[in-house]
């Protein structure tokens, strides 16, 4: 049994302007101790997917499908049980959260609060645990007395990671943990996350728009486009030899310094990501796809085996490029 199994998950936001299908049938599994990276353009549904894992979305969001954490279905479990999972099972480092620390409370108190709420530890134990957590993420224990504004962005992100570790979770979901941080600080935070998950055998789901960072940190990568995973496989395969044209375009957007192929040749992708409320027919990527075939606007391909332990949702990996499927559908 995998630690986390997501099966045909959909999330739709109800808005005044109509339904927004933000996640449209996502399935994947994450094994204990494994690190999975989730990439994709802004708006493709990464954060929605992450928040759905612990039912943290606003009331306007409707879910279908299944999310099993340690064998239990998150979408149907009771509130009491869900609170327990959020407390001791999985924790999320939210996107941009380092900017949302409480400005008027010392960071030590902010780290201590959930420990106090959820355990019977004494004040002295809580203080010791808070100090330990800070040291663990590379901040001196005495910084517990600091207010958020006295810390740099990188230090605040370390505090967020300390909070995520407070309950010894089995899974950490980190949504854009290094975006907007400087290269050197980014390297510090990534090294920290990597060593923490390795030491404690924690599973990691890391979300980023930067495929190169994910490829470096994670075992497996999934690429999302318009609410679906369109490519998934071992990190090196997805980054180095993507089979979906979108995955290829995303990988090519991060040049390897020293590679003559990208020198004076920036690689981009024309067009804009689709509006989730108004998706193109067939393969949602077809209007921007450099490898489009005539029937791509008719066939909506689902993930199909593409190489070793990898899958892609593109007619190019389907048997006979999906032509027989198109014929069957139109018959």
């Amino acid at each position: 049994m995998s630690l986390l199994e997501v099966d045909d998950l959909t999330v739709t936001y109800r808005t005044a302007g109509g339904d927004v299908p933000a996640v449209r049938g996502v399935s994947f599994a994450l094994e204990a101790g494994q690190k999975l990276g989730l990439a994709g353009e802004s708006g493709c549904g990464k954060s929605t997917m992450a928040l759905a894992l612990l039912r943290l979305l606003p009331r306007t969001a409707r879910y279908t499908g299944e999310i099993r954490f340690d064998g239990e279905d998150i979408l149907t479990m009771s509130w009491g049980r869900l609170r327990a999972v959020r407390w001791a099972g999985a924790s999320i480092v939210f996107q941009g959260a380092m900017h949302s620390l409480n400005a008027v409370q010392r960071i030590g108190a902010q780290i201590a609060e959930p420990i106090r709420l959820h355990s019977k530890a004494t004040e002295a134990e809580i203080r010791r645990r808070t100090g330990e957590l800070l040291e663990h993420v590379g901040l001196p224990a005495r910084r517990a007395d600091a207010y958020p504004h006295e810390l740099s962005g990188g230090q605040r992100q370390r505090v967020m990671i300390a909070m995520a570790l407070a309950c010894d979770p089995k899974l950490i979901v980190a949504d854009e943990p290094t975006t907007a941080l400087d290269v050197m600080i980014q390297a510090q935070i990534l090294t920290l996350i990597e060593s923490l998950v390795a030491e404690q055998g924690i599973s990691l789901l890391m979300i980023s728009h930067d495929l190169s960072v994910l490829a470096d940190t994670c075992d497996r990568l999934a690429v999302m486009y318009a609410g679906r995973i369109v490519e998934e496989g071992p990190a090196a395969a997805v980054f180095g030899d993507a089979r979906h044209p979108y995955g290829r375009a995303l990988a090519a957007a991060f040049p390897r310094i020293g590679d003559p192929a990208s020198r004076r040749r920036p690689q981009g992708l024309a067009g804009d990501p689709p509006d989730p409320a108004d998706l193109p027919s067939g393969c949602t990527f077809h209007p921007r796809c450099p490898a489009r075939l005539d029937h791509c606007d008719k066939l909506d391909p689902r993930l199909w085996p593409a190489g070793d332990d990898a899958r892609a949702a593109c007619v190019h990996v389907l048997p006979d490029k999906g032509l027989s499927l198109v014929a069957k559908e139109s018959a």
């Binding site: 353009e41 802004s42 400087d182 290269v183 728009h209 930067d210 495929l211 375009a249 995303l250 090519a252 957007a253 991060f254 004076r264 920036p266 690689q267 981009g268 992708l269 024309a270 804009d272 990501p273």
Partner: peptide, 28 residues
């Protein structure tokens, strides 16, 4: 976004090639 970034960079290169435009690009 990464995929859009390449298009804008290609534009800067093209402006240099076509118009001889010089550029100082500040970046991390």
């Amino acid at each position: 976004d990464a995929s859009v970034r390449g298009e804008i960079l290609a534009l800067l290169l093209r402006l240099r090639d076509e118009l001889g435009l010089a550029a100082l690009v500040v970046t991390h």
